[in-house]
């Protein structure tokens, strides 16, 4: 299983189809259908979530956030890696390092 430590620029990230979400007050509420657990994402997390509804590379997510927020690339990369790692550990996103995705 790929973890946050394995994330590189080409790592592909995709929202799980076992998760449904909605937006409320600029935040995202997620429900994992298998576990019945709810999760909340702040506006930055919501931005990432909406972006990975279509499969994206880590680099695409980083560039997308850099275009939206005034933050250094190093800090952006570190925070995105941490968040994506947490999302993956809860089964909310799938991350893999294959070159070609199905």
């Amino acid at each position: 299983m790929t973890t946050a430590e394995d994330i590189v620029m080409t790592t592909r990230i995709l929202a799980s189809d076992k998760v449904v979400g909605c937006e409320i007050d600029g935040e995202i509420v997620l429900l994992h259908l298998d576990t019945g657990t709810y999760f909340g994402l702040n506006p930055v997390g919501a931005e990432i979530w909406n972006f990975v509804r279509d499969e994206r590379s880590f680099e695409e997510i980083r560039d997308h956030l850099l275009s939206l927020y005034n933050v250094t690339p190093a800090r952006c990369e570190s925070e995105v890696k941490a968040l994506v790692g947490k999302l993956a550990s809860q089964g909310l996103v799938a991350i893999h390092n294959h070159e070609v995705s199905q």
Partner: peptide, 21 residues
Amino acid sequence: LRRACLSSATQNLRMTGELLN
């Protein structure tokens, strides 16, 4: 209103999940 909207949103999510299943 905030509580009602949150409650409605979480219920709607459960119903959305059930619909997809």
